[in-house]
Design a protein around this nucleic acid. Sequence first.
DNA 1: TCAAAAGTGTTTAGTTTACACCCATGC
DNA 2: GCATGGGTGTAAACTAAACACTTTTGA
Lengths: 246, 246
Amino acid sequence: MNNSFEHPKPSLTVDCVIFGLDESNELRVLLIQRAYEPFAGSWALPGGFVKIDEDLESAARRELEEETAVKDIYIEQLYTFGNFDRDPRGRVVSVAYYALINLKNHPVKASTDAKNAAWFKFDEIPELAFDHKEILVKAIDRIRAKVLYKPIGFELLPEKFTLSDLQKLYESILGQQLNRRNFRSKMLKLDLLEEAERQTKVSHRPAQLYKFNKRKYEELSRKDGKFIFEIRFQQRDSKGEEDEID
Amino acid sequence: MNNSFEHPKPSLTVDCVIFGLDESNELRVLLIQRAYEPFAGSWALPGGFVKIDEDLESAARRELEEETAVKDIYIEQLYTFGNFDRDPRGRVVSVAYYALINLKNHPVKASTDAKNAAWFKFDEIPELAFDHKEILVKAIDRIRAKVLYKPIGFELLPEKFTLSDLQKLYESILGQQLNRRNFRSKMLKLDLLEEAERQTKVSHRPAQLYKFNKRKYEELSRKDGKFIFEIRFQQRDSKGEEDEID
DNA sequence: TCAAAAGTGTTTAGTTTACACCCATGC
DNA sequence: GCATGGGTGTAAACTAAACACTTTTGA
């Protein structure tokens, strides 16, 4: 392959918005602290330049692993940011990816190119380098919309989880309290959760653990034209808040 | 701005998937016939190289106008295609855009870089250059999904249209027959259509013409948390087809 | 008077919402 | 024995689906 076009070209980068859940089932995002200029010391999304012989998604994975040690995850393309003034170094177009990961399976440590890597709560996000705030906002919008009609939330949880874990996850992504009984019945009616064992060693009634049956979900999506995964609640003319007080 | 990064860079292009409706309310896509190598003579999506000081969306608009004379339309980013072997000339990453346009307001003519430009029905799409077939498929998937929860269909219609026009549009995008009475009542219940005059000079009962009230849609989307635009039909255990025979 | 498309209402089934109390465990 | 979160059922309101005949016009 020759690659000798005449005209000047933009540089091409990838950036990754990685979401994870913390111990209390709150959504967090993975940021790195930049080691080099521009924006040295600032927090930013992990990412970097695409190599000439590398697919975009591979580049995203590589940069993510290089900077945070997170690897072997499922990522999805978010959007491409290409305003001509978005990078002080010159014309840089960035293809953004996002992923939802299970925080426990993917320990984070800062490595090459990054001074530091850490998980941030949404309400504690610092100023970010470049237009990374805009990218992050777009990613949040995307998962908020997507979680309603695709079972992406399960990517964030360990293999076995309780319905309360799942509900807190939805509440955290949607930024909205959900009614417990309705959440449970809607989720169970989808018939995509398999019972595992019960919890042990909790100082309250032990909860049922479930596993998400991904295979079944995929079969239904393929075969059954009528099957729709949908988790959406509307709240009738919201006068009273929350779940009732017993 | 300096733009002197050392490493070799991919080239960056934009491609446009433009949808329009023909006289019989069938969906079509705008293709050009390439004037130059590679793939000279092949049909392809309109598009071309991004200039160094040009935003991505501007590039998409410029290329579209250069090749097809279509201009002043609302376009939206679709996806970025960057497999390293997608272009025989070397490494080329392409940011794809899509748009839905009203065919009558935007006459098409081939110009610079294109031998020819024409609207194709979905079942008559020829072999396309590069990975443009894949881009097109992704665009169709996108509008099929989006038309269910955003009123994008109206972009395809003239200002005033009948409910039958609108229904045919939905049927054409979704590839599915819809029940006329249910379609009408669902659409009217949204309360986003304004009555205009009636049809004249048709050799059957003249239909009511409507205009889409975009302002009202936007207000409701902003203010009313409960408001959801949704046009989706499920068909109960599909035994009988079509509308009943009178 | 015919052809062609517009227009309309109701019943039924299914889904969504709202809501309050008892249960099981560890400490 | 108490604190903590787990677990459950139902009635009422609403929404979606199915379905057949009459109307209006031009030719």
